[in-house]
């Protein structure tokens, strides 16, 4: 009997391990495939030149620049608003219905499908504000989508700063803002940075919100102003793989590889910051 339960346990754990492997192995396989097929096509020319012959030849420079510009634009709006919102919720707000309402809104914002953000951006920024399909409209749309990620991460980082530090600061006659800006924020920055970078990396890889707000199908020049349309890597991948016939697989793979690399660099940066500051933390 006892033997039996031991065997069952072994079997159960083996199945659990196998399930974990089924999830994780494809990650490695996908990365390997993308690297294997994408690396040969990756060249200085591919990265830094304009697409030619209806995107079947040349490079993907405008798409890379477009994605970088959109990411910076997203950061410019979502970081300040997200951090301030988290400060409000964690440092200023009392425990009342209004706070609860704000929290529920954040949860819902986080759950809204990305394509609905696209519709919203089209309705508000492109049409209502008259920005047209533009970097400005796309960045703002992506910002709002990224906001809940940044708020949640920042809030977590803020609440990890011990209450006692705030109390000491108040006891020395500091106002709430002085306490936040001199004690709480400096100690929360690593956590904020990590969460923010992860949020931005997700924005950089998104396609649906930019479909109708900024993405250009084929625009072989660099954007000139915030009111310009722009190509973007994720949309470019979509276009190459489904909309344009006879694009070589190598070009497709290399484009995918560039996007994956960009997103992973951001993720690795976030992981590095997290690891580095965790070690340095003194309290």
């Amino acid at each position: 009997m006892r033997e039996n339960t031991k065997v069952i346990e072994k079997l159960a754990f083996a199945i659990l391990g196998l399930a974990t492997l089924i999830i994780i192995a494809p990650v490695g396989i996908i990365l390997f495939i993308v690297l294997w097929h994408g690396l040969p096509g990756l060249s200085f020319e591919f990265i830094f030149s304009m697409p030619r012959e209806g995107m079947r030849a040349g490079g993907i420079f405008p798409a890379i620049v477009g994605t970088l510009v959109l990411t910076v634009g997203t950061a410019a709006f979502s970081i300040p608003v997200g951090i301030l919102a988290a400060i409000y919720l964690n440092e200023y707000a009392g425990r009342n219905w209004l706070t609860r309402l704000f929290e529920i809104s954040i949860i819902n914002l986080a759950g809204i499908p990305s394509i609905v953000y696209g519709l919203f951006g089209l309705g508000l920024f492109v049409t209502f504000f008259g920005f047209g399909a533009s970097i400005l409209a796309g960045s703002l749309t992506l910002s709002i989508m990224t906001l809940p990620v940044i708020i949640t991460a920042t809030r977590e980082a803020l609440s990890a700063v011990p209450m006692a530090f705030r109390e000491v600061s108040f006891s020395l006659g500091a106002s709430r803002w002085q306490t936040v800006s001199r004690v709480v924020l400096p100690n929360a920055i690593p956590g904020i940075l990590t969460g923010t970078i992860l949020g931005l990396s997700r924005a950089a890889g998104e396609t649906a919100p930019i479909l109708f707000t900024v993405a250009a199908f084929y625009l072989p020049r660099l954007p000139q102003s915030p009111f310009d349309q722009a190509m973007a890597l994720p949309y470019h991948i979509y276009v190459l793989s489904t909309q344009v016939p006879n694009v070589s697989l190598r070009t497709q793979y290399s484009t995918v590889l560039v996007l994956v690399l960009m997103v992973f660099i951001l993720n690795i940066a976030a992981a590095y910051i997290r690891a580095k500051f965790r070690r340095r933390k003194t309290w």
């Binding site: 993308v34 890889g205 949309y235 993720n267």
Partner: peptide
């Protein structure tokens, strides 16, 4: 985490 980081388009 890596799986979460892969863009859906990929």
């Amino acid at each position: 985490e890596l799986l979460a980081a892969i863009p859906s388009i990929v």
